[in-house]
Design a protein around this nucleic acid. Structure first.
Lengths: 262, 262
DNA sequence: CGTATATTTGATATCCTTCAAGGACGGTGG
DNA sequence: CCACCGTCCTTGAAGGATATCAAATATACG
C-alpha cells in the first residue's frame, strides 16, 4: 500500500474517520466531532429492510459495520441494486432535500449504523470547512461509482462488468481496512451480483466460472482474489481514478493503482 | 404548470437562477451573485469536444445555452454517454477534488458556457448557505439521474428505457423553460439516444417506431410529444420524484407529476 | 442431520446486435 | 432551381449474448 496522509488518527478510528483521514489531514477536534456524531447507533440484522422506497426519511445513516444494499423493485418485479454501501459510507446524506426516499435499503449482513440528525450535516458545513469538503467528495465519489456502473451496464460484457465491480469493491474495502493486497471477503450471492449488474443469476455463474478458468479471478469460500491483477484490470477496463482522486493538496495524487488511458 | 415559489426573478434570468428560483426564495443579492458569477463566457460550436477524458480541468462549467453530452469511450471502441447537460446544469462542480476529468464532454448544439473559477463555489458555501444548499441539491439530482439510468439499463426494456429517458428530458427542459406541456425539441440523433441508453442505433429506431405505433410517443421533425402522457408514464415506470423533490420549506412538494407507487 | 439457500449445469427462447443496403431529408454549389 | 452529397433514418436478414425454465448438486445453518 502506498503511503497516505496520516494525522492523529487513533487505531480504533471509525471507518468514516479512516476514509477521510486518508486524503485530508484531520485535526483532533475534527476527528472528535466525527466520532461523537456517531454515538447514536442502531443494529440491523441480515435481511432487514430499514429504508422503504417512497417513505419519509428522518435521519441520515452512516454505515459503521456490515454491508448494505440500496435497491429498487420495478413494477415488472425485477430488483435492481443501485449500489452497495460499505463502512464509512453515508446513506441519505441529503435528506434535507428529499421528502421521501427514492429507493429501499436492506442489510446484506448484520450491520451497525450510526443515526445522524440532518442538522449535524448542516453544522459540519458551517463549522468545519475541511470536513464539509470531505463530505462533498464522498458525494462526488458516490456519483462516480454510479457513472461507472452505467458504463458497465451500457458498454461492457457480462464478464467485464462483474470483474470491474469486484475490483471496485476490492478498492473500496481496502480504503477502510477491510481488504488486503490478497483480496477480500465477498458478502454477496451470485443473485445479488446479478441484481447489481443487470444480469441473471445463471449468467453471473457462467461468467464467474469463465473468469476463473481464464485465471483472472479466484473465489474460495467467499474470499475473492485476483491471480493476475494487471490482466484483470486491463480486461475489465478498470481505472481507479473514480474512487481515489481527492486531496486538498494539489501535490498528492491518491490511489492504489492507475491505468494509463491509451 | 403548478405554482412554484417565485421571488424577485427577472424575466431574463439565467437558467441557473430560474431553476434554483423554482425551489428556493432567492434574495436580490443572491440572484445578483449568481448572475455575475456567469460573466466569463465561452461559445462552443456543435460537435466541439471541450473536456477530454484524463486531462486536467481548471474551471467549472455552467451550461447557459445548448445541449452538452458527457461521455466515455471504452477500449473496445464503444461510446457511452454518461449524461446530458442542459442549461442551468453545472459540469465539474467538484473539480477541487479531481485532478483529471474522468469523462469527455462535447456540444450537441452550438452552446454557451459560463466558466467559473472553483474558488467561487467555495465562496458560495461560505457566504450564501441557501445557495450552497441549492448546489448540493443539484449534485444530488445529478446523482439521482444516474441512479435512474442505471435502473433503466439494468432492469427496463429498450422501449421503456427510451421513453423514460425522453420523459426525463421533457421534465428537465420544462424546469428551465425550454419545454411546454405540448412537448420539446429533441437535439439528439437516434445514435446518440442509443449511446445514452446502451442500445444500438438500429434497435433504437425500431423501438421508437413501436412506441409511435402504440401511441405513446410522437416525434415530428425533432419535436417530441406524448399523445397519452399517463400511459407513457405508466409504461416507462416514470416517477419524477428523482428530479423534483426539493425545498427548504417542508410544506412544499414540488414536481410536475407524481406517480403513486403500487 | 435435515432443511433452506446457494451454486451449477443443460436446453431452449428472446432480445438485441451486427452487417448490409436502401431511402429520406437538408444543405450547398453550380 | 436542380443536382449532388452527407447525415440520419429505415428495413431485412442473420448471429450472438443473455434470459428463462427446469432440475441436480453443493453448501450453510439451526
Amino acid at each position: 500500500m502506498p503511503p497516505v496522509n496520516q494525522s492523529a488518527i487513533p487505531e480504533n478510528a471509525s471507518s468514516l474517520v479512516r476514509r477521510l483521514g486518508r486524503s485530508v489531514l484531520l485535526t483532533a477536534e475534527e476527528v472528535d466531532y466525527l466520532e461523537t456524531m456517531q454515538v447514536n447507533q442502531a443494529v440491523v440484522e441480515k435481511g432487514d429492510e430499514f429504508i422503504h422506497d417512497g417513505e419519509h426519511m428522518r435521519v441520515t445513516f452512516l454505515v459503521r459495520r456490515g454491508w448494505i444494499i440500496r435497491f429498487k423493485i420495478t413494477p415488472a418485479g425485477r430488483r435492481l441494486i443501485i449500489g452497495i454501501s460499505l463502512p464509512g459510507d453515508f446513506i441519505g446524506l441529503h435528506i434535507n432535500f428529499n421528502h421521501s426516499s427514492i429507493y429501499s435499503a436492506s442489510a446484506l449482513t448484520k450491520a451497525s449504523l450510526a443515526l445522524i440528525e440532518p442538522v449535524r450535516i448542516l453544522e459540519i458545513h458551517r463549522r468545519f470547512p475541511v470536513l464539509a469538503s470531505g463530505l462533498d467528495w464522498m458525494t462526488m465519489r458516490h456519483s462516480n461509482i454510479l457513472s461507472e456502473h452505467k458504463i458497465s451496464l451500457g458498454a461492457r460484457t457480462a464478464a467485464q462488468r462483474i470483474l470491474h465491480f469486484l475490483l471496485e469493491l476490492w478498492t473500496r474495502l481496502e480504503q477502510v481496512g477491510m481488504a488486503s493486497a490478497k483480496g477480500f471477503d465477498l458478502e454477496l450471492t451470485q443473485e445479488q451480483i446479478g441484481d447489481c449488474m443487470g444480469l441473471s443469476t445463471v449468467h453471473v455463474n457462467r461468467s464467474l466460472n469463465r473468469l476463473g478458468k481464464e485465471r483472472m479471478l479466484h473465489i474460495d469460500k467467499g474470499f475473492v482474489s485476483f491471480p493476475d491483477v494487471d490482466r484483470a484490470i486491463d480486461f475489465a477496463d478498470f481505472d481507479d481514478r473514480f474512487l481515489t482522486e481527492f486531496s486538498t493538496d494539489p501535490g498528492n495524487i491518491g490511489g492504489k493503482r492507475r491505468i494509463a488511458k491509451n
